[in-house]
């Protein structure tokens, strides 16, 4: 019969129509079989998933952007440190930029007055710093690179006599990173014993007076010791070189005493 033909054909229709029309109470585990096709529910689920994905991506992008902003700017603000010096960058003079245009970069050394002329920098050294560490013969060294941030760092360098305690010199470097060069990268470079002699003895010191955490490199064979620490984002490097054996001076202890005077 023709009607039976229709019935047979109906038996072959898409299973989803069979499933959605199934009487709900007939299967022992209804969710597995008889839930109707829920197109709206699926669309809703897909939309919710899409919103969650978009929000997640937005959050990640925002976090990445904020992190990038932080990384880019964390070294651009000059720290105001009371103990050592105050540095106010205004503008880089056209003369300095002209001379610095030769790739990849050049390092300039100048006197205190000279660097002001070159860089139009108003450099102030606090009284305490002058009286304690920086004596005669202060050198100011600026490193520059051509590009979006011409000034990468300013280095204050001082050398003075160790006085009666020992012969030799105390050198002090104050690194102020202005551009992309990070103090911590400098520390890594400086503390790498392979950059100097391979027989350096590395150690650390935490001052009980001011809490400064310094890293030491002592080169006994050449009578040289240096300490590095970061305070307020500024990298300090203090080194002592002398004739330790003749003077019976423990260079590391001498440096620790100097570090204790900070703060």
């Amino acid at each position: 019969m023709k009607q039976e033909k229709i019935l047979n054909i109906l038996g072959q229709v898409d299973e989803k129509y069979i499933e959605e029309a199934a009487p709900e109470e007939l299967v022992m585990n209804p969710p597995a079989v008889i839930y109707p096709f829920r197109g709206k529910g699926k669309i809703k689920t897909a939309l919710i998933a899409a919103v969650i994905i978009i929000l997640s991506c937005t959050a990640v992008a925002a976090a990445a952007y904020l992190y990038q902003v932080y990384i880019t700017n964390r070294d651009t603000v000059l720290p105001s440190y009371q103990i050592t010096a105050e540095l106010n960058i205004q503008t880089v003079s056209s003369d300095a930029l002209k001379e610095l245009s030769q790739p990849p970069y050049q390092i300039y050394k100048a006197s205190y007055a000279g660097v002001e002329d070159y860089l139009d920098i108003d450099l102030l050294i606090s009284d305490r710093l002058e009286s304690m560490v920086l004596g005669d013969g202060v050198d100011i060294q600026g490193s520059y690179t051509k590009g979006e941030r011409p000034i990468t760092s300013i280095t204050l360098r001082s050398r003075h006599d160790t006085g009666a305690a020992m012969s030799g010199y105390i050198d002090m470097f104050v690194y102020m990173s202005i551009g992309t060069k990070k103090p911590y990268e400098q520390i890594t470079e400086i503390n790498n014993p392979e950059l100097r002699e391979k027989d350096a003895i590395l150690s650390e010191y935490v001052s009980e007076v001011n809490g400064i955490h310094a890293k030491f490199a002592v080169y006994e064979t050449i009578g040289y010791a240096s300490a590095y620490f970061v305070d307020n984002g500024i990298l300090y490097s203090i080194s002592v070189s002398g004739f330790a054996e003749e003077d019976h001076i423990d260079l590391a202890e001498y440096l620790k005493g100097l570090i204790d005077t900070f703060g």
Partner: peptide, 15 residues
């Protein structure tokens, strides 16, 4: 949807 379910109940399930 409802018409389709009714149709299938009648001609597939013979309800």
């Amino acid at each position: 949807a409802e018409t389709r379910k009714i149709f299938m109940r009648r001609y597939w399930y013979f309800s």
